[in-house]
């Protein structure tokens, strides 16, 4: 087999002895397609050794499978769906959207958006059960409410002897014209005396909208500032002694937004009229 002049075993050039191992033979040797007996002289042991190495790894059983598979499942979900760049962009977009929504929602709740925007936001939020004024600041109808969905029946409880006070058609001050406040409402019917004055006094005429979404139905919209605070009076105008701000007992928390209020007993409240 020796094909050169180097015979010493410790000579590094002894590798040259096997330089004639052609690619095809080497390939068969490495693929395990060359039995030791068929191997070129000197390579029988190599064929045996490679086969032994091949056997060892293929008879080994994978260990710790359960924990590893669980980790792999998590890794697939972590890395296999969205490329990292997209994930980052999605997070940025989500954060920006949340910021815009929070800002516009806050402004809408204050009725501070321009009319069109206010209406859009109001409609959008109404779909998810959040009531905000439907018109912009200073616009007609600002501070109005949607009486069928909100807590406009706060006064329909026992402490509210004029349950129809919020009904436009039933408002005794309906013909009172423009008023700036509840006092004006009452003043305008002062001459009528007795029952009518009492009824108007118990109504919400001229009152600013409450947290439950109430608004004075008879007031001129332009005269009502949406951000104006209701002024509690020592003696409530609704007869409940709450200054028109708080609800009568049993009507729920007036400070609670309309969408958080329990469903109003509309027919019952109005039937008292």
């Amino acid at each position: 087999m020796a094909r050169n002049h180097f015979d010493r075993l410790d000579d590094s050039s002894t590798e040259m002895k096997h330089e004639t191992l052609d690619d095809w033979t080497a390939e068969r040797l490495l693929r395990g397609a060359l039995p030791p007996d068929d191997a070129p002289p000197g390579y029988g042991a190599v064929a045996t050794l490679l086969e032994a190495a091949r056997t060892e790894v293929r008879t080994t059983t994978a260990t710790a499978t359960d924990g590893m598979v669980t980790a792999m499942v998590a890794a697939v979900r972590r890395g296999g769906v969205v490329p990292r760049g997209r994930r980052t962009r999605a997070k940025v977009a989500a954060a920006a959207s949340a910021g815009v929504l929070a800002l516009s929602g806050g402004m809408a709740a204050a009725g501070a958006l321009p009319s069109t925007a206010q209406q859009q936001v109001s409609r959008a939020l109404a779909k998810v059960g959040i009531e905000v004024p439907g018109r912009g600041h200073g616009e007609p109808g600002s501070g109005s409410h949607t009486p069928k969905r909100d807590g406009s029946h706060d006064n329909s409880g026992p402490g509210s002897p004029t349950p129809s006070a919020h009904d436009d058609n039933a408002d005794p001050a309906g013909g009172a014209g423009t008023t700036t406040n509840h006092g004006d409402c009452v003043s305008q019917v002062a001459g009528a005396g007795g029952e009518q004055v009492s009824a108007v006094a118990r109504s919400d005429c001229g009152k600013p909208p409450t947290a439950g979404g109430h608004a004075a139905q008879s007031t001129t919209p332009a005269q009502v500032k949406p951000d104006s605070k209701p002024q509690p009076t020592p003696q409530g105008h609704d007869g409940s002694g709450n200054g028109g701000i708080t609800s009568p007992p049993g009507s729920g928390n007036p400070a609670r937004p309309a969408h958080e209020s329990p469903p109003p007993a509309t027919s019952a409240g109005h039937s008292k009229a």
Partner: peptide, 20 residues
């Protein structure tokens, strides 16, 4: 890679018993 595998095989053949 082919050169590396050739040298490896030659080296193994040299070191193993029965090798040249």
């Amino acid at each position: 890679v082919r050169a590396l595998q050739h040298r490896a095989l030659q080296r193994l053949a040299r070191e193993l018993p029965g090798g040249p």
